[in-house]
């Protein structure tokens, strides 16, 4: 190969690599920048209802119900404004908990129930020992009792 041809090949290869990277980036941005949609977005029909998508939010407290088979579970995803009921059959991640973050992938049925084929837990960025978390919880409770009229949790 002559030097000029080689230069051309290098420039061509470089451009091709750049094009592939750009395509990868754009493709990733198109589909995945919004990794999940909130219940509010689902109600506003911003989510692609005709194909599988992900829904994310908090597992509503008290909404988790397990079927007798031990695998099927029903719960509600909330962003505090809207609520979407979800059913899922499979093993839940360790960090799946009421009141904690969750991301479920699946389809929204005509009955308004989201049928998930994958459920992921979404944890927050706080790290602390269990005792500290417990103390924080207690502080929150006693603070709430000051405001609440029938608060009798004083020590």
């Amino acid at each position: 190969m002559k030097p000029r041809q080689k230069r051309l090949a290098i420039v061509g290869g470089g451009l091709a690599a750049l094009a592939v990277t750009a395509a990868l980036v754009l493709n990733a941005f198109e589909d995945n920048l919004l990794f999940f949609f909130s219940p509010t977005q689902v109600y506003a029909k911003e989510a692609p209802l005709d194909r599988p998508f992900r829904i994310g939010g908090l597992v509503e407290a008290g909404s988790v119900k397990r079927e007798a088979d031990g695998l099927t579970v029903a719960f509600k995803v909330t962003d505090t404004a809207q609520v979407v009921p979800v059913t899922y059959k499979g093993i839940l991640p360790d960090l799946f908990q009421e009141g904690k973050g969750v991301v479920a992938r699946g389809r929204l049925g005509p009955d308004g129930v989201f049928r998930a084929d994958q459920v992921l837990a979404r944890h927050d960025e706080n790290y602390m020992p269990p005792e500290a978390a417990h103390a924080l919880e207690q502080a929150k409770k006693s603070q709430g009792s000051v405001v609440a009229p029938a608060g009798g949790s004083g020590k």
């Binding site: 990733a28 941005f29 589909d31 995945n32 920048l33 990794f35 839940l92 991640p93 360790d94 960090l95 799946f96 994958q118 459920v119 992921l120 837990a121 979404r122 944890h123």
Partner: peptide, 11 residues
């Protein structure tokens, strides 16, 4: 162990 997946295509 935390999310439930080794890999996801998030941003």
């Amino acid at each position: 162990p935390t999310w439930g997946a080794y890999w996801v295509w998030d941003a």
